[in-house]
Every structure is written in C-alpha cells, then in structure tokens.
Design a protein around this nucleic acid. Structure first.
Lengths: 357, 357
DNA sequence: TTGTAGGCGTTATCAG
DNA sequence: CTGATAACGCCTACAA
C-alpha cells in the first residue's frame, strides 16, 4: 500500500525545495526548463495529485456544494440533484448530500455540520417540519456567516437568498383552466395542508381558475390530506380517504391533485368505483414522475422540470460564490456589495396524456 | 457578515495561547477550572465550532464517504443512498456523491477527484460501460493507495474489497419456481445483455428453476433487450420489441422480467393484446419499486431491499476505516493485516401481489 | 497549569 | 531561478 505522494516527498527525492516542486507543477514561469521537466516527469510517474483538503484549507474554499433535501427516494428531488450535479461538475464543484427526512432538527444538525468548513454554499429545499414551525434561524445564521444559500421549490420569502421555484400558481391555474375547457363542471382538488407553501399556491391557482371560469368553488370539493398518508405504510388509508371523498361527492367530473401520488390513487379509486377515465372523470396531477408515465391510463401532468431547477440553482450558487471570491480579493465592503437576490421561476409544462380529453 | 471564529481569535481576545483554548474546549484535564469556564463561555457565545477541513488535514481523515453510482434518478439507487446516509450519519460520517451516468470516464474522473483527500472510502456500484470494458484499474489503484472500497449490487470478483449483493440467482430461482408451482408451463424471460453480472445470474436462476421443474428451456422464450431501450425516449421501441416477442410466442403463460420497467411494459403489452392478468399470463419482476406497487394490477416482485444494502455497505466500510485507523496507530504492517474481505448477501424477498396467483 | 513549537499539504511572499 | 518562511486552523508532545 503506497500512500499518496506529497510535495515534500518529491522534494526530498529530487533534492530540491518544496517550493520549487510546487512551482514546477503549477507551471510557474519562474523556474528552469530543466528542473521543470525533471520534476514533472517524476510527479507524473508517481501519479502526484494535490491534496484537496490542503488546498481547501489554504484557499479557504472547498469547491463543494452542500445539498440539503427532505428525502432522496423521491423522483422530483433526485431529478434536482442530477441537475445540480451536472452543473456543479462542469464548473469544478463537488456535491455533498444531507437528508433532513422532513425533520427540523436533522435539518439544523446537518446544516451546522456542513457549514463548519465542509462546503462553500448550500442548495436546499425546506423540510415540512421546519415550514410548520416557521423557525428559520439556522438559515439566517448560515447566511450571516457568509455562506450563501439557494432555496428551491419549498422556499420562504423572508430569507435573503437566491431562489428557484416553479410557478405553482400559474401551473395549477393552467391545469384547471384546461379541465374547464374540456367541459368539466365539478372539479375537485386534492391537496395537502397549507403550511407547505407550494400546496397553498397550487390551491390558489385552482380557485382563481374556477373563478375566471365562472364556476363557483365549493369547499366540499376540496380534500386536504394529512402528509403522513403519503408514507408507504399508510397508502391504504390514503385510498380510503379518497374513496370516502368520492362517495360524498358523486357529481365530481374532474380531479386536480397537487402531486402524482394523490393523482394516481384518485385514479385507482375512480376505476374501482366504475368511473371511466377520461370519459366520466378527467384527472391532472402536479409533478411529472414515473408513476404518471406508466399509469393506466397514463396521467396528464404538470411537469416541474426538476433537472432544470437543479441546474439553475447550481448556476445561481456558483455565480454568487465566484462573485464573493472575487470581491474578497478586491476588499469590497459589505455595504457596497450587490445583494440583489434573484428568484428564478421555472415554467411548468402541461403534458397531456390519456387521463384528459 | 461575521466570519466563523477560530481558536486564534478566541486566544487573542482572552489573551491566552491557542493551545490553552484548544485544551479548554476539548475538556482536557490539564487545564485550570477557571480558565476552562471562561474560555468555554466565550466560545459558546461566539458559537465556536472547529473547522472540519483543518481537522481533516490534521487527522488525515475526512469522516466522509464517497458514493459513486451510475444514476440517481432511479428508485433502487436512491434507496441505497438513503441506507448509507442513515448509517453514515449515525456513525459520524458525511456522504458525498458522484454520478457516473453509466460512463467509464466519468466514473474514473469522479473517483480520482474524490480520492485526492476528499473522502476516506468509497461505496460504489459499477457503471455499465466499465463492466463492458472490464477495465478496473481505477478501483485497483484506489485500493492500493489505501482507500477502501465497498461495492454493491453490480460487483466484480477480482477486486479486493468488501461487497454487498443480493442473491440474484436464488431470487430468480424462487420466482420462477413459484410460477411453475402456479401451473405455468411456458415461462418467458425478459432480460438484458449478459455483461451486467446481475443480468447473467438472474438468467441462470431462471434456467435452473426450469430444469428442476422438468421444463425444457427454449431459447425463443428468452428476450435479451438492449439497455438503451430503458431510456425514456425509447420507451415506445421497448414496447414494440416486447410486443413482437409476444406475437412470436403466443403460448407464453408467464413472464419473469429482470427489472420492473420490463415487467410493467410487458404487462402493458399483454393487456393490449387482450391477455388477462393473472388468468392468462402471470408476471413477476425483479426489483421492487414504485412502478410495481402502483401498477394495475399490482406486480408481484422480488424486493432487493436497497436500503438494507446501503446500510450494510456503510457498516462494512466504516468498520474497515476504523480498523485501518486503529492499526495505523499500532503500526501494524501490511503483511500481518487482516485482509479478509467480506461479501454480504442480502436475501431477496418475493412480494406477492395481483399479477400472480 | 500554561505556553512554545512543529506538523498535516499546499501556495505565496520575500530574499538570495 | 531557487530556497526559506509564513500562513490556512487545529492538535499535541514537550518545555517551562
């Protein structure tokens, strides 16, 4: 087992100083052609590669991005990660992942852990528990320590950072409008509790579309489901809830669901109750994932373009990191710094499949 | 923006030496009770946290694990990551992710990148291209540099490292046996090209089960599909291929597919051709994912227990890291080191749903 | 009990 | 053109 070779070792072997070796390998101009050749050849032979950790310490930047998400076994989030990773790699960054598992304390711990030098900046989506408690001190603290954050999808307004969101309102609005244009009159909404911002916005889009379509919104046609039901072990309860909802509201002729699990489950229930899709009931779900594509019939959905979101987020973060780094050298002071935080809105896209017509 | 406070700053403020501060914060016994109190209070007030990078450099260990996988938008892999992350966090490690995107060169580059000090060890699943080229020099090199590797799912034998695999052979065997016991006579196999080890083993399990069931295996009942077809943009081709296969073999009464996409697609085709499931055709897929659970009818599958695999892999790696670390202190020499690499086999589990009876 | 010095691997600044 | 020195932030053996 031969350990990685260091500058020091090369220096000793070749009987020159460490700085000479460093210069030769960095193609400094102030070095003799001969020594350079010799050192470079030697280094290549021993497969020398500079130690990232030492570089990080010296340069005060790790060239790695911390990703903090609620859950990884989730099509949308993994799509976002893929987008981040692609851009990060292109631009010379690595990616380190922390999972909050929707828990406030895990989010805080992970964040503090990574903030202690491991990463240059964060890309994150807020956990549900955090959203519920509305306790954002860890974000603020991190930012005040000079570590920039980019939030995506689940964001809150009063944090000074760049954001990448989808136009939840407009997306829902478009979807529901589409249903109306297809002649639906009793459009139900299946959604989550309001504290998740995206849930709220999607509900608002639904309401606005109804209003503009001159359809009176009825509270009875809105089903707010507890998040816990999305867990695998509670799928049957979810199904039962939706079934009861259907039985309470036999007039339903369309469903707009704020995520694909609700959409697919609603479809299952509808078929069980002998509704024909899309003849009797049309369905649209938010979030385009595997389930929607492969459902029978396949589901019309709003695509969130997760990968695109990830890419945008990564660009925003790295742009800011590099800007900060440049300014540091120029000794720019806080008060003259450009703190214009940007919010990038990714357009949703209605992908029409078999569940509407 | 107040930057993170360091030992040095605290030392200056309190007019003591850096080492005193360090000792006070590490609860060293050789320190005055009074000074300790003072320093700890001060540090707490300024929210001092040691810099991970500096610690990594000093301790020559980063306390982070590198995960290298072919693809993240994939239920199985993300499940494994979740397992790794849980154990890693429990045991004080972070997790950094590299994606090979099934490409050999990206795998090599990512590995070299991370091997330069960023991580203590790897957990990985080999990319298809690497498997195809059978070029494993980067793994061997990494290992010879003293960085341990744990491979999962897609592994190769001639690499000295711990491994976590599922019993592909036994799993397939069980599944096909089950189909036979349900009275199926013409059991088709839908699989991938042989170079992915798991594909090969699953095929062998299929053949063995037929043999033991006194059923003559027919080459015409085995469909080997090109991997490219699994890509989203080629789903229709995949469907066409399977449909042609069906039409060539009208006698098929059961299908065993080596992944869930093939299984679900086969089911789609079967229904399109007016076969009743499970009455006319029974179907079992390898890999239990979202698709199988939510398909109509739901699919009987072999679960790979991805999270469990991740957890096992993380334990294997961290155990070895800690062993290496201990031995380093005791100056154990290579030749007296315990190089017994372990291979943990995770049992697959047949989850019976509606596609069999 | 506290301080000094050296080192982890690298780069940058200053002399020579 | 090359070498010594300091520094990034931390820990620790040794000295006082």
């Amino acid at each position: 087992m031969r350990r990685k070779v260091t500058l020091k070792q090369i220096a000793k072997e070749l009987d020159v100083s460490i700085s000479t070796v460093s210069r030769a390998l960095n193609d400094s101009k102030e070095i003799g052609e001969e020594t350079r050749q010799k050192i470079q050849a030697f280094a290549k032979f021993y497969n020398y590669k500079p130690n990232n950790i030492a570089l990080s310490l010296k340069n005060r930047q790790t060239k790695t991005i911390g990703i903090l998400i609620p859950e990884i076994v989730h099509h949308f989030f993994s799509t976002v990660i893929r987008g981040i990773e692609i851009v990060a790699n292109q631009r010379g960054y690595n990616v380190i992942i922390g999972l909050s598992n929707e828990s406030f304390s895990k989010e805080v711990i992970n964040m503090e852990m990574l903030a202690n030098g491991s990463i240059d900046g964060f890309i994150l989506s807020i956990s549900k528990e955090t959203l519920l408690r509305q306790d954002y001190h860890h974000f603020k603290e991190t930012i005040s320590q000079g570590i920039p954050i980019v939030m995506f999808d689940r964001v809150v307004n009063d944090i000074d950072c760049d954001k990448v969101i989808v136009d939840d309102f407009k997306g829902s609005y478009t979807a529901v409008k589409k249903l109306i244009s297809y002649g639906c009159k009793n459009i139900a909404l299946i959604t989550t509790m309001d504290y998740v911002s995206v849930g709220k916005l999607r509900t608002q889009g639904y309401l606005q579309a109804l209003e503009d379509g001159k359809i009176h919104a009825k509270g009875s046609l809105i089903l707010k489901l507890d998040d816990g039901l999305a867990l695998e072990e509670h799928l049957d309860i979810l199904e039962t809830e939706i079934e009861k909802f259907f039985k309470r509201n036999k007039q339903i002729d369309a469903i707009f669901a704020v995520n694909e699990l609700y959409a697919v489950t609603a479809m299952k229930v509808a078929r069980k109750l002998d509704f024909k899709i899309p003849e009797d009931i049309q369905i649209i779900g938010f979030t385009d994932g595997v389930l929607s594509k492969h459902a029978r019939p396949s589901l019309t959905t709003l695509s969130q373009h997760g990968q695109k979101m990830g890419e945008e987020a990564a660009h925003l973060l790295i742009d800011r990191l590099q800007q900060d780094h440049d300014e540091e050298e120029d000794e720019v002071f806080d008060f003259e710094r450009d703190m214009n935080f940007r919010t990038v809105v990714i357009e949703t896209e209605l992908i029409e499949r078999e569940s509407t017509k």
